Amino acid sequence: MRDDSGAESADSRLAARLASLRAERGWSLDELSGATGLSRSTLSRVERGELSPTAASLGRLCTAYGLTMSRLLTEVEAEPPRHVPAGSQPVWYDASVGFTRRSVSPPHPGLRGEVVEGTLDPGAAISYENPPVPGVEQHVWVREGTVRITVDGTTHTLATGDCLRFRLNGPSRFHCPGPDRTRYVLLIVMP
């Protein structure tokens, strides 16, 4: 996790929050491993802050805990203010796949929506086995480039200016076919 205003403390807070989520549920590392498909040792290293999770592994953890990725990342930040200046929007980067995620309008208590900006490098692909919250409503608006989004077994190719809207109840995949990067806005509305 990269938060330009304090990467080390954000990583530490994420590790602590992941450990506390498991403890709140009374799950062992073996139980969480079974629920996520991640190895016990990987989970242990993530919770101790020795390893930063990838987008895919964080997605699996969010699914197990019933949280969107934005909500989890916001939980490790201070209470989000009403005004979110561009310089204080949390940014998370997964170098292993070439994915950057900016929480433009982080989740907030009492609000059901959030806004995320995603950037995929050419060739990058992110797959999620399950939605973090079944039935979550998503609107994807492409601002730059081309992205292929697979939802409910159907692949949609979106170009600059296109929008795709859906309720997420199963696996999904975002892929940037290139040759340029893709930048999109994702609006998430909780059920």
Rank of each mutant, 00 (worst) to 15 (best):
E75S: 09
A78L: 03
E79G: 07
E79D: 11
E79H: 03
P81L: 15
R82Y: 11
V84Y: 00
P85M: 04
A86S: 12
G87W: 01
Q89I: 11
Q89N: 01
V91A: 14
V91Q: 07
V91L: 15
W92N: 10
Y93H: 14
Y93G: 03
Y93W: 07
D94R: 00
D94A: 06
A95F: 10
F99P: 02
R101S: 15
V104E: 05
S105I: 14
P106T: 10
P107I: 13
H108Y: 09
G110F: 03
L111Y: 12
L111Q: 15
R112K: 11
G113S: 15
G113F: 14
V115G: 09
V115D: 08
V116S: 08
E117F: 02
E117I: 05
G118F: 13
T119H: 14
T119Y: 04
L120N: 06
L120W: 08
D121R: 12
P122R: 05
G123Y: 05
A124T: 08
A125L: 09
S127G: 15
S127V: 13
S127I: 09
E129I: 05
E129C: 07
E129F: 04
P132I: 06
V133N: 06
P134Y: 04
P134Q: 01
P134W: 03
G135M: 04
V136A: 07
V136S: 07
E137F: 08
E137I: 06
Q138P: 02
Q138W: 01
H139D: 10
